[in-house]
Amino acid sequence: MKRALSLAAATLLVTCAAQAQDYPSESITLVVPYGPGGASDLAGRALTEAAGNFLDEPMTVANTPGSGGMTGARKVSTADPDGHTLLLARVGMALLPAVTNDPSVDWDEYTFLGSLEATPMILAVAEDSPYESAEELLEGIENNPGELSYAASGATAIDGFTVQTLLSDAGMDPLSAATLVPYKGGGALASALLGGHVDFLAISAASLMPHIESGDMRPLMVYSPERMEALPEVPTAEEQGYELAGQVIGWSALYGPPDLPEAVVDTWDEVLDQVADSETWLSRAEDRGSISTIGDVDMTTYAEEQYNFYRELAEKFGYLQ
């Protein structure tokens, strides 16, 4: 028994090896708060692949799905602040705390290490739909109140807000003008539109591009600061004059637990600078249809802006009492 204890202690010794050493002193776990294979997972894996070249220790992905991403977020937020557990944050990390009164992790319970990428969203209808533009679609909604349905991950999810902001911009009630039908995951959302079970949707570009390329879906508008390279003729929400919808976009960022030591933050500043120019990162981002934003925005400010934006929306739409 004694030997067992010392053996076990020795194993423990290896795992919790002195934290005083230079960062990173052991492999870094990047928590992806969604399931494997999805857009966030691919972003996380692209980051670990690219950043792995500039770190002394390997970086691996751990998928921790649940509660719209808050399970993984909570795990990182409460982890030891040694920089060996980091989070691939998505827009949900700022959005979900904004739309509930008792969030399991608030928007600022992290150390913000940097932004990673912006992921455009697309408003699309099926190929046999009568609507040729966002304006026509909105007219159709106005003429048949509540009749048209759209698929989204949930009322207070990012792909629900894409539609609700648009309805609100057009002067309609964001909650009742069109009927929300909840589905889980990009694949299920896309197939709901393909199968003709809903009339339109506005979700992340990555899930829709294959169907747009094959001609089964028609893109009406993109939620992105500028037009997408792959869809040069599709206007952006901002161009069309939709004020709120023009501000909705998906993004990824790198977060750590609160109060990360200075040394860790500095290391990541350097590493992310190198990742921003690396071939792996850029080509992987292009494959997924997202735009690298490393170094373009100050993440702390951006996260706060995003939180305030969705907080105001939630109050305006009546999600918060």
Binding site: L7, A8, A9, T11, L12, L13, T15, C16, S27, T29, T60, A62, T85
Partner: peptide, 27 residues
Amino acid sequence: PLVLYLFFSSALNTRFPAGSLATILGL
């Protein structure tokens, strides 16, 4: 348990909880 620990931590990079005792002892 030791074999399983080694397998999971090396193959899947699972980080099992080390316990507060280990932290107190300064490990």
